[in-house]
């Protein structure tokens, strides 16, 4: 299990009020690989994912103990500027949520808030990232129409382009294909596989087959606890823990 670590989670616990969503998680996420977080629904998969870019911050009554290191920096350190952490990561949510603006502006949004103003530069990058998300050919003739008019599959690829445009090092996917039809799902999965050379990717899914297709590395959570983690092949073919076996066999879901 030799790999370079990109995100390093140490004794992470997350509470919502009195409820504990994550219990003392310690795990390392490898650099430039696809890590898939699996587990039954409500087991804390999304909470773990969203703690990486501190989107859990805005939940009422949220409390965190422990550390998450990204590039060696503890992101829960009060000194840390949260926008700087988030800029490092692109997020794909369960359903695509295009911002209430045009296709062009959706991709340019992140660039603009981080200070890119020159029209030429914006044009160039919007085109580049729409191509990266394999959406350019479908939308290049209507860049200035509202993004909400795209199909759901197109919207999800737009969200991918939007996330890539801020030049993150990490892509976070929270069940990113759950609202898509099989064809669109396959396209998104394909992109993940092609992009993993350049990005560290972390994906939450409850579809076991999808996890098997994508994962280099697997994290199995159950009721907020880390049960097992390791290289995908090892975990899927030879799980060590009883719970993991049952989950992979499909007796618990």
């Amino acid at each position: 299990m030799e790999f370079k670590t990109h995100i390093s989670v140490r004794n992470l616990s997350v509470f919502y009020g009195t409820q504990q969503a994550l219990k003392n998680i310690t795990v390392d996420i490898p650099d430039k690989k696809i890590t898939v977080i699996i587990g039954p629904s409500g087991c804390g998969k999304t909470t773990l994912l969203k703690s990486f870019n501190r989107l859990i911050d805005s939940q009422d009554g949220m409390k965190v103990t422990g550390q998450v290191f990204v590039d060696g920096e503890n992101i829960f350190d009060p000194q840390v500027e949260v926008t700087h952490i988030r800029k490092k990561m692109g997020l794909l949510s369960q359903r695509p949520y295009p911002l209430p603006m045009s296709i062009y502006d959706n991709v340019a949004y992140g660039l603009r808030i981080h200070g890119t103003k020159a029209k030429k530069e914006l044009d160039r990058r919007v085109e580049h990232y729409l191509k990266e998300a394999s959406l350019w050919d479908e939308v290049n003739d209507r860049l200035h129409t509202p993004a909400s008019r795209l199909s759901v599959g197109q919207q999800q690829r737009l969200c991918l382009a939007r996330g890539l445009a801020v030049e993150p090092e990490i892509i976070l996917g929270d069940e990113p294909t759950s609202a898509l039809d099989p064809k669109s799902s396959r396209r998104i999965e394909q992109r993940f596989l092609e992009l993993k050379e350049e990005y560290t990717t972390v994906i939450v899914t409850h579809i076991l087959r999808q996890a098997k297709r994508l994962a280099d590395y697997v994290i199995f959570l159950y009721l907020g606890e880390l049960i097992e983690h390791g290289l995908a092949r090892e975990v899927f073919e030879n799980p060590q823990k009883e719970l993991t076996k049952e989950y992979i066999r499909g007796t618990i879901s």
Binding site: L55, G90, S93, L99, P100, Y109, C159, G163
Partner: peptide
């Protein structure tokens, strides 16, 4: 989730309000 999408891109709370919430 629309606010979340904006925060995830590294926008501040106020940028999110100004460009996303108020616009919507």
């Amino acid at each position: 989730e629309m606010r979340e999408a904006s925060w995830a891109l590294g926008a501040t709370q106020w940028q999110t309000i100004k460009h996303v919430v108020l616009r919507k």
